[in-house]
Amino acid sequence: MKKGILYLNQFFGQIGGEDKADYEPSIRDGQVGAGLLLSNLLEDAEITHTVICGDNFMGSNEKETVDTILGFLEGKEFDIFFAGPAFQAGRYGNACGVICKAVKEKFGVPVVTSMHQENPGVDMFKKDVYILRGGPSAANMKKDMSKMAEFGNKLLKGEKIKGAEVEGYYPRGIRLEIFLEDETPACERAISMLLKKINNEPFVSELPIPELETVPIAPAIKLAHAKIALITSGGIVPVDNPDKIQSASATRWGRYSIAGMKRLGNEADSAFKTIHAGYDPSAANADPNICLPLDALRVYEEEGKIGSIHDYYYATVGTGTAEGEAARMALEIIEYLKADGVDAVILTST
């Protein structure tokens, strides 16, 4: 019988909730919690050990945690490693990705985890490890764990993996070469696709290009009386970063007063700076107006080209930031824009 090891966080490892998120990694024999379900669903394998670690502990001591856990696994016999499912829990998703990637690199065994598409861990690790498409919350435990077991069974049996769409994992950005069962060569498939296209018949491309989702174009505004707001994804914040916006993969944003300010003061003035980790901050720290052009907009206000400037600007960091997170943050910002009757927005990106 083959052997698997499962990684769980403090909550699903039955240590405790948020107050135990600093729990140091431990390993125990056998199955804990939903690990029993996973073990039962594996066909010719069982979960022999469970690794448990607090999400915050992993988040703040990543290298130490990974080293400790790899140490636990050293000398243990196992054929596959599972983590999660992490649902939409961002820190848990990060932990599952980190440990799966490390285990795969060190021991060369297949690794499997599961996350909801909005989990930032998906974009961080989908290129490195198999992440199965999972539900948003623990209500999906049974379903997501069953999918992990089913996919694990295939990997353990050495079955051919048929690509992201068929198997239900997030595309890894790898073109998987497959041989069609009927062995129709590419030239014939291309001609038959072309004929279908000419005859207006439906056909399916073998190289789909992600579709662009467009939004209806908002109407032009009359500038003379308009209230304009400034937003940036360039990470411009007050120097103490009061909202603790992350330097990458941001999930937080800030709203900062610019009422009466002619321009943004710089880092040397203890006013504003950038916390964006994706570009050299020296120019923006020396003059934040090059990223959030308050000075120019203020002059247009004085000259009467626009009605007024909204009293606050909004900022987050746009690097590694999941589209879903960006959309959620925008919806939260829009409430403030609407409440103050903002007519239009200038959004600067870096």
Partner: peptide
Amino acid sequence: MVKEIEKAGITV
């Protein structure tokens, strides 16, 4: 972000 703002009817 831009798309959500535009969807909300605010010109951006």
